[in-house]
């Protein structure tokens, strides 16, 4: 199955693809700063990314305008999902869900 190429896809983030996807999922719940994102991902995905990986992914997502920083009085800048980010996340999750369904169906038949 070939996925439709998308200019906003996060697949070409290389090793930052996985943290980028999980950051988008985390921000789908609401705005969070870096530390809160790390803790949230550790809870729902059981993965703890290092600070370099997390901000490498955040920088890429922000450069693509998939997330955006919110004004903050302290040093912690919260980020939120943009409309474009929401679209990309929905498309990515739908694609993953389709693969999951096919995989489970094939396993059930085996």
């Amino acid at each position: 199955m070939t996925r439709r190429p998308d200019a906003d896809d996060i697949e070409d983030f290389g090793r930052f693809s996985e943290p980028a996807l999980l950051i988008l999922v985390s921000l789908a719940e609401g705005p969070k700063h870096g530390y809160a994102i790390t803790e949230d991902i550790a809870v729902f995905a059981d993965v703890r990314f290092g600070p370099g990986s997390l901000y490498g992914a955040i920088a890429r997502l922000e450069a693509r305008r998939l997330i955006e920083p919110l004004a903050s009085e302290d040093r912690r800048n919260p980020y939120r999902l943009t409309a474009r980010g929401e679209t990309v996340l929905k498309a990515r999750l739908a694609s993953m869900a389709a693969v999951t369904r096919i995989g489970q169906r094939r396993l059930a038949r085996a």
Partner: peptide, 23 residues
């Protein structure tokens, strides 16, 4: 500043140090 806050909130580990150098 954000990264410094995040780093300060975590205990030192070789893995985090390597991750920062790679980053």
């Amino acid at each position: 500043a954000e990264l410094a806050d995040l780093v300060a909130a975590q205990p030192f580990s070789i893995g985090a140090a390597v991750d920062l150098v790679a980053g």
